[in-house]
Design a protein around this nucleic acid. Structure first.
Lengths: 331, 331
DNA sequence: TTGTAGGCGTTATCAA
DNA sequence: TTGATAACGCCTACAA
C-alpha cells in the first residue's frame, strides 16, 4: 500500500532503518524496531517484491515447475501430494510458492525465460525429460534450483530423489519370492531417467536371481492407464505370470485387461505397481504396490533449495531418500 | 542475461529505442527496429520483469488463484480443466500464468499480500467463500482482477459465471419430467454462493411445478464424495425417489450408498449430478449429469482480465455464460 | 545504532 | 524518429 518512506516518516526514522527492521537486521535498537513494527502493521505495509528483488534482495517466492501435460498432472497422485508438501513446507518457512504447469512442447521456452528472470529466489523442478532445456537454462542463469528426480546428465545439478533402484528391486524380488517365473514389466515413457532406472533395476534383479531375461516380457505403457492396458495386451501373448508396472496407473490398466480376458489377479498373474496411489485403492488386494515418501521428497527439496539460496555451496547438493518403502502386501 | 543498455550499445541506439522496440511502440524506424530485434535475439535478451514492473510497465504475468484445499483441487475435475483453459488462453496471448493454491485458512493473508504486490498484471480468482478477504484486499489494491463465479457482495467486482440457476432448473425439471415426486437434493458447502444458488433454484423449480417443499429432503454434502454418501444416508429415511446432487462427486457418493442399501439407480432412486466429471463416467448410465462449459469460463475470464488490464473501465465487467448446457441423459 | 546516497533494469516524459 | 533523464521502491555499503 504505502511506500517505505512513508513508514519511515511516520516512525520518525530513515528508510534504511525501516529496511533493516523488515529484513531482521540485528543492528537496530529494540525500541526503534518496535516503533517501526507498529507503524508497519498499522499501515498494513508490505514491501514491494519487484523493487526488493531489483535492489538485490529476495522476493520470498520460489517457483515449483512441473513441466508435464496439465491433464496428467491431476491424474497422477504423485503431483498433488508433491505440490501440497512443497507448499506447506514453504509456508512454514515464510515463503510463497508459484506453481508453473507447462505443456511439454510449447511452453518450454517461455517458462525458461521467466524462470531466469529474477522474480524468484529459487526453483524446484519435477518430472523432467532427458535433456530438458529447462535444466540447461536454469543452470546457465544464476538462479538456485533443485530437481526432484535425478538428471541423466553430466551437468552438476542439485537434486533429491527416491531410491528407484532399491524400490524396484523390492518389487521384483517380491514377485520372485512368491514363486513367479515369468515376470513381465510395463515401463514408463521413453526418454525419462526414472523409467530407465526402473527398467534396468528390473533386469538386474532378474539376473541376480538367475532368471533369464525375455525381451518379450517388456512393454512400454507411458505411465498412463490406457498405456498399461495396451502394454498388457501385448505381453499377454507371452504368458507372464507376473507384471511389475512402473506406476499404479499402468498397473490398473493391466489389471483391467487381464480381468477382461478372464484371468484372475493375482492368482494367474500377479501385479505390482508403484506409487500406492489412492485411486488404485479399489484394486486391492489384487494390486500390490510400492509406496513412495513423496511428501518427504517435497520438503527435502525445499530445505535443499533454501540452503542453496542463502549459502551458495560451490558443489551441488544431492540427496537420495533411503527406501523406507516397502512392498505393501494386500490385506 | 544482459541488460538493455548492452543491447542499445550493440545496436547503436539508446535505451529508449530498445525499450520502444520491446514494447512494440509504433514510433520506431523500421530499419532500426530490425537491427535492434536482431541484437536482441542474438543476445537472447529478455527484459527483467521486476524492473519492468517497477518502472510502471507490465510483467506479462497473471495470477490464477484457487484458494481451496490442495487435495480437493486435484479431485474435482473442475479445476484441472479450468487451469488448463486459463493457461492455454494466456499463452496464446503471450502471457504467463502463476498458479496459487492455498489452504483456505492459513494462507489467506499471505496470498492476499502478495497478490496486491505488483508482480502481477492481473489476477483471476476462482472458488471463493462468502466474504472472502481476498476479494476485499484485491478490491482495495489497484490490481485488476476477475472472479470466476459471482460474488455475493455489494462490492462492484468483475466476474464470469455459468448460469447456475438455469442449469439447476434443467436438472430438477428433468427429474420432474420423468415422473419423480420426492426429489431430494444434496448441497455443497455452506457459505458458498454457488451452493446457495443451486439450492434456491432447486426450491424454486419445485415450487413452480407445484411440488411441495420438504426440508427433510435437503442435506449438505460439502462437494465431496464422502459427504454425498453421508447425506444420502440421512435422506434415505425420507424415501426420496430422486436426488439432485450439486456436483458429481457427491452424486457418486450417493449412488454408492444407495447401492449398498440394495436400491437400484435410477429405477428406485434417480440421481442427477453436476459437472459431467470424467471420474464419474463409470457410474453412467445410472448417473445423469449436467455439463459445464468450464473451458469457456476460463478463456472468458482471461479475455475479461485483459480488457481490465489495458483499459480500465470504470464499471466492473460481468458475464454469465448462456447455458448451452444440457442434462446429458445416459446412453 | 542510525542516516545518506547510489544503484538495481525498465518505462515514461519531455526535448531535440 | 530518437535520446536524455527522472522516476519506480527497495537494499546496502559507507559515513556519521
Amino acid at each position: 500500500m504505502s511506500r517505505i518512506e512513508e513508514i519511515a516518516k511516520q516512525a520518525g526514522v530513515s528508510r534504511s532503518t525501516v529496511s533493516r527492521v523488515i529484513n531482521n537486521d540485528p543492528n537496530v535498537n529494540e525500541r526503534t524496531r518496535q516503533r517501526v513494527l507498529e507503524v508497519i502493521t498499522l499501515n498494513n505495509y508490505v514491501p514491494n517484491r519487484a523493487a526488493r528483488k531489483l535492489a538485490g534482495g529476495r522476493t520470498g517466492i520460489i517457483g515449483l515447475v512441473i513441466p508435464i501435460r496439465v491433464a496428467s498432472l491431476f491424474v497422477e497422485p504423485f503431483f498433488p501430494i508433491l505440490v501440497q508438501s512443497v507448499t506447506n513446507h514453504c509456508n512454514r518457512l515464510n515463503h510463497s510458492v508459484m506453481l508453473w504447469l507447462g505443456e511439454p512442447e510449447r511452453e518450454r521456452r517461455s517458462i525458461t525465460q521467466i524462470l531466469s528472470n529474477d522474480l524468484l529466489d529459487g526453483v524446484i523442478v519435477s518430472s523432467l525429460q532427458d535433456r530438458d532445456p529447462i535444466v540447461a537454462a536454469l543452470h546457465q542463469s544464476k538462479i538456485p534450483f533443485v530437481l526432484i528426480g535425478s538428471y541423466p546428465n553430466s551437468l552438476p545439478v542439485s537434486f533429491v530423489d527416491i531410491d528407484n533402484e532399491d524400490c524396484t528391486r523390492q518389487a521384483v524380488n517380491y514377485l520372485i519370492h512368491i514363486g513367479r517365473k515369468r515376470i513381465a514389466t510395463i515401463t514408463g515413457v521413453q526418454g525419462s531417467l526414472v523409467s530407465r532406472t526402473r527398467l534396468e533395476a528390473y533386469r538386474a534383479t532378474l539376473a541376480d536371481a538367475g532368471i533369464e531375461a525375455d525381451e518379450n516380457l517388456i512393454a512400454e505403457g507411458g505411465f498412463v492407464e490406457e498405456g498399461g492396458y495396451a502394454a498388457m495386451s501385448k505381453l499377454a501373448a507371452h504368458r507372464p505370470d507376473a507384471v511389475f508396472a512402473a506406476n499404479d496407473a499402468m498397473a490398473v490398466g493391466a489389471i483391467r485387461y487381464l480381468r477382461e480376458q478372464g484371468q484372475r489377479v493375482p492368482e494367474d498373474v500377479a501385479v505390482v505397481g508403484f506409487d500406492d496411489a489412492p485411486f488404485a485403492a479399489g484394486y486391492k488386494p489384487a494390486l500390490t504396490t510400492i509406496a513412495q515418501p513423496i511428501a518427504e521428497l517435497g520438503s527435502q527439496a525445499v530445505d535443499m533449495l533454501m540452503q542453496l539460496i542463502d549459502g551458495e555451496p560451490e558443489k551441488p547438493l544431492t540427496k537420495v531418500l533411503p527406501s523406507v518403502l516397502v512392498v505393501r502386501e494386500s490385506a
